[in-house]
């Protein structure tokens, strides 16, 4: 966990520095009236300090129980694949339309969970159609129609 805490500290520090840099383009204002850059600047500063403290604390931490030493990594491959599916979904949603994209992402998730083909097709189809009916038809949410028109 030590290594991971130092790593997450480093990432947060990076975020803080980048965000602080971006905020520096916004006027800070005066003490009598803070400008648009005031809150993001101090928040980025605080995040940076906390990230440094996190790195320091993890480095100085003496001993850890065996349980706490490891982060709860499990199934990273699957989780990464799921993230990929979600990103692909967002990329394809407008072009493919809600039904096709949603059916696809559901099928992909079910396949990742190693379900059998009939289950994959059945669950994906039924739930995509049901949610479309509920949201688009019944609640009049303008879900993306896609190039095919549905």
């Amino acid at each position: 966990m030590k290594t991971w805490d130092r790593l997450s500290g480093a990432v947060l520090l990076l975020v803080a520095v980048a965000w602080g840099y971006e905020s520096s383009r916004l006027p800070l204002g005066q003490p009598s009236l803070p400008g648009p850059g005031f809150q993001p600047s101090w928040a980025a500063g605080v995040l940076g300090l906390l990230a440094l403290a996190l790195i320091l604390e993890a480095t100085l931490r003496r001993s850890e129980s065996a349980e706490a030493q490891r982060p709860r990594w499990a199934g990273e491959g699957k989780a990464l694949a799921m993230m990929g599916c979600l990103i692909a979904y967002a990329l394809a949603l407008n072009a493919a339309g809600y039904l096709l994209a949603t059916g696809g992402v559901l099928a992909a998730f079910l396949l990742l969970e190693r379900q059998r083909w009939p289950v994959v097709v059945g669950v994906a189809l039924v739930s995509a159609l049901a949610s479309y009916w509920l949201f688009a038809v019944w609640l009049q949410v303008p879900l993306p129609r896609g190039l095919l028109g549905w």
């Binding site: 979600l86 967002a90 998730f109 969970e113 669950v123 949610s131 949201f135 949410v141 879900l143 993306p144």
Partner: peptide, 30 residues
């Protein structure tokens, strides 16, 4: 759970979209 999990995802995706009818919210969700 292997079947419930994709349904939870579906729930989140359609829910996020319908807040402002916007794809950007789907990106924020992801």
């Amino acid at each position: 759970y292997p079947i419930l999990a994709p349904l939870i995802i579906l729930f989140c995706l359609v829910g996020a979209y319908s807040v402002n009818n916007s794809l950007v919210d789907v990106w924020i969700l992801i």
